[in-house]
Design a protein around this nucleic acid. Structure first.
Lengths: 210, 210
DNA sequence: CAACTTAATGACTTTGGGGTCATTAAGTTA
DNA sequence: TAACTTAATGACCCCAAAGTCATTAAGTTG
């Protein structure tokens, strides 16, 4: 007796984004190599064969996940920076807030961990990510810092290093949440963490009032 | 014709550490799943069969790598903290400096990236690492911060959050070096980065002089 | 409703790599 | 130097998961 006819829907439009969401979730959780494409397909409510209808192979799927994850957030932040009037520190706050609302508190938040874990195995994807995300994000923060130093709001510091020191706690927060964060007894309070970071940065960066 | 006799040395004592060093290097570079035990063995100058003489399976090798990586550095830092007299900020500097000399600039520097990437796949190893490394490191920094706040040297801030904000740039530095760091045009200057971090922390943490 | 197009399936093939073990040879002992 | 112990080897087994494709059925057209 042949298997009873399974109910299968034809939804050509919706498949790619559903497959990407499933792949992102599993890649972030287990890592690239330990993720089975059959599991990705199942999580997307589809068979493995269908996945190959939309993505040529596992690496193409990975690349698509990363590209999708970039979204227009960088462009939006560049727009915010261009329009900004007010203190340079307020600009840093705005950038962080927007980035958080569009990446930090979404499923895309897992991408930094994924990219960090797989950068060495996929140098071309990593280079693409570096150019289109990291470099642009660093440029935004760097410009805000430069503006603040020029206006006398910030102390003069090595800009290139300061960019990385300012960004690190934010990136680390995401990476943490997707890795060792669960082993802490007391649940971490994201807002309090970011508040302390900005508090330390405000006093750390700004020229002390005499 | 049988293969000519290969020259093989018997070095029972040296094998384990050589295997661990090779495994650490490849695990950090490629990740756990993408690392082949045959490559680990080859890098250690030994055959795959020999590896199994010393470690029961791949996961046991991974666990050994993590345990080995802990070394007595935490204990040493606890000792440093206990003996310390002087400002609390100077204590933070001492802890960082010792940790850097014993972990940050050695092969063990790759362990944070490895642990972050694999925590979800090996919850028991991750829990072990959390208890024996993370928790103790956080306690050290937390005690230094508490001491500084009690003495009036530091501002009063949420200690738990501040611990993580202070540690994040240091961890991120290591993770960076083993992942996306290579894609930056200008080579990063570790000393300058740490100097800026400590500079920002000093002014950010300390009570402003009136 | 018959003929046709194509989204979707899942059984099948293939392969890379984890793990085993019979064999070999380095070193030791009498 | 013969007999013995054990470190080391690598050919082999086996399975899980990537990737394929003949078949099925959902939807469309006339």
């Amino acid at each position: 007796m042949p298997t009873p006819a399974p109910a299968r829907k034809r939804r050509k439009e919706a498949r790619p984004s559903e497959l990407l969401a499933a792949a992102l979730s599993l890649f972030v959780d287990k890592g690239y190599a330990a993720t089975r494409l059959e599991d990705v397909a199942t999580l997307a409510g589809v068979s493995k064969g269908t996945l190959y209808l939309y993505y040529a192979n596992k690496e193409a799927l990975f690349m698509a996940v990363i590209q999708e994850g970039i979204v227009p957030v960088l462009a939006e932040n560049e727009e915010i920076a261009a329009r900004h009037t007010g203190s340079s520190f307020a600009l840093l706050e705005k950038l962080l807030e927007h980035w958080w609302s569009r990446i930090g508190c979404t499923a895309y938040a897992g991408i930094p961990k994924l990219m960090v874990a797989e950068a060495r195995n996929f140098p071309e994807i990593a280079a693409y990510y570096y150019r289109n995300v990291i470099a642009r994000g660093r440029a935004l923060v760097g410009a805000a810092l430069q503006r603040g130093m020029d206006s006398g709001e910030f102390r003069r510091l090595d800009i290139e290093q300061t960019i990385d020191v300012v960004i690190a706690p934010v990136l680390m927060l995401l990476i943490w949440d997707f890795s060792l964060g669960h082993f802490k007894d007391t649940p971490s309070d994201t807002n309090a963490y970011l508040a302390v970071h900005m508090d330390l940065m405000r006093q750390g960066l700004c020229v002390p009032r005499v």
